[in-house]
Design a protein around this nucleic acid. Structure first.
Lengths: 396, 396
DNA sequence: CGATAGCACTAAAACGTATTACTACCTTCG
DNA sequence: CGAAGGTAGTAATACGTTTTAGTGCTATCG
């Protein structure tokens, strides 16, 4: 069809059109890729110059509508599109952003957060035809090396930085490298890059106030990795709570795994005075903790209330279902993508965009202290032998 | 340092070396990327030609070790690396593979399989410095378009195809486009591409035989999306089981969500004769099903045993923990990556690589029929009114 | 001792597109 | 009617590498 159309125009000898489509094919091309087209091929078929093809493809003026359409039709029919590399060489964008994760790859599949976030991010980006380059590395050192390499290679148009630690050097490096980037954090400041931040302070406050309103004064907090900024932020808030709300909080640090969540739960149950509520930093540990408590014969929420700092489908499937801070992680990814697109396009001055603060969804795992107190005596008696080394007399 | 070294050599006027590093910087370069280096800059600093820089960087012969090292040192110091686009233009690889998912993006975060698989894939690839281009699209049509576009743009070196449906057109298209690819499937044949396959037949057989060995003859099967090849494969096996093992299996199709898993469970419980064992196609539905059963007062495994076709941390956290087919999804990703690397490198004839067959991990959710029978009488009596239309007399 | 071979390196030609400067042609207007 | 201005297109150059075909030079061998 396209051929016929160009034939009709007749500015070139037609017999050459068909035969010259593929001239540079190596003789040894037995099973290789079908046919590598170039803009010259399209130009020849359309009876125009390569410049015209470029103009047509980039929507630039200087071409009649008829010619433009003819070129596009032919390209469409042959599934030709400008070679990425050649475009990129001329300074065009890569249409790809990068995200480098420094975690043991094994744990990624376990963490629902990451997959949700990535989905949201990709969802927004792909509507702009932008792909995501994902790389999983061992540690921050490797991560820095990747940023350097990608910058030097011009591999991506922008970056998303996750899992910021205290005194993280990455934002500065990325800023110095001149790669547009957005960091996902829990503060509104402290970075030379545009940031999307979640108010972990307010979130933690809402959890603490809720538990206090239920009458809980002894609270356990099973944190995640303490070097992460958001963990620090939550711990700070807990500290404030100790003073402001007059509560007693025992913190245990973990690596977010179910195993350590279970272990932390046991340790908390052995401590005295025993806490009547436990906050877990993620969903996996909450579920594991609930499992341990059930196994130990501790009533939830009868004796101990539990709250998860991260919601997921898992939280509704347990018995009882677990009260959790919920946030739309998918939307968070979308928001981050939107911001990154803006940064890539305009390179505006860094700013902080606040994502919605997680909301507490009350489910069956939390109850007023009254019910806990009623049974606490009996529970502590049964546990006392293990903790007797502390010299704390069992409550009668 | 590097400068001094080149000065020592003295083949070029040294005063020019420092001042000419950045000549083409536009005057308006106020806040843009630091400094764009090119191979000519490195060459100048090292006192050699650009060709030498290229030879050094690609480990090609024709350079003395001293010169080679000097070039590499200077490049290292300046964080210079060949521009990807320019390399790719010369036919070098993209060092990126692509993976396009056609699912509602929202569900991706829920499914542990995908994140695990991706982690494993990336883990193997990134040790070769290869990144993954991820794109999430709405449907297969969009997916085909992306494959076309990526092929035309030479965007990736290879593809991974997931979620194959019956009569999936993608393998043929991708093969026609000439993109090296690996499909993840559940058959050893039927595709023009190299495949990594899991023996879903054998896996299902192991589950059925296990349940039969426990004495279960009435089994419910809550399947996933039936258009997927692996679902079909499992259904076929169930059909065989009906004949071979003389069992009675009731199948209910779902979309893998917890909601539909719960619904299917209710429906199975209402049918007569009531099944004494249920197989779920993924972990989410198993947990949701267990929740429904518990809520209905059905004892697990006392009255009904349940088995999940997919294992995850979730399966150990429920009460009782759920018997599941376990497979190392991370390793499956690694295997797929290994195969893809081979295909990309050598373009061998298509072949089928078998991944380890999932193994059954028996946990607390399954028990012999005896215990089920013992209580079935009571259970059936209570349920009988609903199922009396079938006229099946309650077992005594 | 002259021819040969190997070594270390360079000049120049790709790779496939985007862009800039330019041309030929056609209108329009004073 | 000639100049100005717009339209539709082209030729040539640039992007930053890799690669091919050399070029001197030194060491080796018959």
């Amino acid at each position: 069809m396209a051929c016929r159309e160009s034939a009709r125009r007749g500015t070139m000898p037609n017999d050459q059109v068909a035969s010259e489509v593929r001239t540079s094919s190596p003789v040894t091309d037995s099973s290789g890729p079908p046919t590598r087209l170039r803009s010259t091929d399209i130009a020849r078929l359309a009876g125009v110059s390569v410049s015209a093809v470029s103009l047509a493809f980039n929507g630039r003026p200087g071409l009649s509508d008829a010619t433009r359409q003819r070129i596009l039709d032919i390209a469409e029919e042959l599934n030709w599109r400008p070679h990425r590399a050649a475009r990129a060489l001329k300074g065009a964008s890569n249409e790809a952003i990068g995200i480098v994760i420094a975690r043991p790859a094994q744990t990624l599949g376990v963490e629902p957060f990451f997959a949700q976030f990535l989905s949201g991010l990709q969802s927004r980006l792909s509507s702009n035809g932008i792909a995501t380059q994902l790389l999983i590395v061992e540690d921050v050192t490797a991560q820095l090396a990747v940023y350097r390499r990608w910058a030097a290679e011009h591999r991506v148009d922008g970056l998303v930085l996750l899992d910021l630690t205290v005194d993280d050097v990455r934002p500065q490096l990325v800023a110095d490298l001149g790669i547009p980037a957005v960091v996902l954090g829990s503060h509104a400041d402290m970075t030379p890059l545009t940031g999307v931040w979640v108010d972990d302070h307010a979130a933690m406050v809402s959890v603490l106030e809720y538990l206090v309103s239920l009458g809980h004064g002894h609270i356990g907090y099973v944190t995640g990795v303490t070097s992460y900024q958001h963990t620090q932020r939550r711990l700070q808030t807990v500290d404030e709570g100790r003073a402001t709300l007059g509560i007693d909080v025992t913190c245990v640090a973990t690596d977010y795994s179910d195993a350590q969540g279970a272990l932390a739960t046991r340790r908390l149950m052995e401590a005295a005075p025993r806490c009547t509520a436990i906050i877990y930093d993620n969903d996996i540990m909450s579920a594991a903790g609930l499992g341990v408590l059930t196994e130990m014969g501790v009533q939830v929420p009868g004796e101990v209330s539990i709250v998860s700092f991260d919601d997921s489908v898992l939280m509704s499937l347990t018995h009882p279902p677990i009260t959790a801070l919920t946030r739309d992680t998918f939307a968070l990814g979308e928001l981050t993508a939107t911001e990154l697109l803006r940064v890539v396009a305009d390179r505006p001055a860094p700013r902080a965009v606040q994502a919605p603060t997680p909301r507490l969804i009350v489910r069956g795992s939390t109850a007023p202290l009254e019910s806990a107190l009623r049974r606490e005596g009996a529970a502590i008696v049964s546990v006392a032998p293990r903790t007797s080394r502390d010299g704390v007399p069992p409550v009668r």
